[in-house]
């Protein structure tokens, strides 16, 4: 199997793998994490708002998303969003949104469910005296959240949020099912074209492993630094 392992195949494919593939993977990861965090925080605030209906809606959404396999949601969105677009705009044909937009929306919606649970735990970790002190100073509910509660919750939860983002980074490889050229998609294409499956899939694994490992190490460093600051 390894007797004719060809490093040159990998080296020749490097520009394509990284410029096309990895840059897409990182862009998708970053945008999804950002969007998921914003939307997830909104869901967490809904669940903690004290309005029963809002809480129920957010709770159902989170449970729903967490009960579905990610690949299914990716497919589902890819085929459904054009029809929803058609229905909303009243166009005569399904509106093509493109694989990137579709996968981005999918990941934001899906990750929001996970980020919302993290942010909920973060908000609940703040002692009740903090919002009380903020209210006593005259801050409104929104200001209390924005300036006092959320910054602390975010800081407390930063290691967990980054860990979830590392998982997201790996999960973005599932856009492969939409034949998008992310890092794994690019590796796969080269593998098929050159008939070098072993080299390309091994290399892809090494790259995912290395990046995730370094990021995890960074999280541990960060955790110990935050622990000192408190």
């Amino acid at each position: 199997m390894f007797s004719n392992f060809d490093f040159n195949v990998i080296i020749r494919a490097l520009p394509y793998l990284f410029y096309e593939g990895m840059s897409f993977t990182i862009l998708l990861t970053a945008l999804s994490a950002l969007g998921g965090l914003v939307f997830g925080t909104a869901l967490a605030l809904m669940r903690l708002s004290g309005y029963k209906i809002l809480g129920r809606i957010a709770g159902l959404y989170v449970d729903f998303m967490r009960s579905l396999p990610l690949v299914l949601v990716i497919f589902w969105f890819y085929f459904l969003v054009p029809y929803i677009g058609q229905w909303l705009t009243g166009a005569s044909r399904p509106i093509s949104v493109g694989a990137f937009a579709s996968s981005l929306v999918t990941f934001i919606m899906f990750e929001a469910a996970y980020f919302s649970e993290i942010m909920r735990a973060g908000i609940q970790s703040i002692s009740r005296g903090q919002p009380a002190a903020a209210s006593a100073l005259g801050l409104t509910y929104a200001q209390t959240m924005r300036y006092v509660v959320l910054p602390q919750a975010f800081r407390n939860m930063l290691p967990v949020l980054i860990t979830q983002t590392i998982v997201l980074f790996q999960d973005t490889s599932l856009v492969y099912v939409l034949s998008i050229t992310d890092f794994l998609g690019a590796a796969s294409k080269v593998a098929q074209r050159d008939g070098r499956l072993v080299e390309m899939y091994l290399f892809a694994a090494v790259v995912y492993f290395t990046i995730s490992c370094i990021a995890s190490y960074g999280v541990r460093r960060l955790q110990s630094r935050i622990a000192i600051l408190r």
């Binding site: 002692s127 009380a132 002190a133 006092v148 602390q152």
Partner: peptide
Amino acid sequence: PKLRSRVGMVFQHFELFP
């Protein structure tokens, strides 16, 4: 909020924003 802003309050556990 407006009324509270006119009344100062000091808590047992200080509640400074860390």
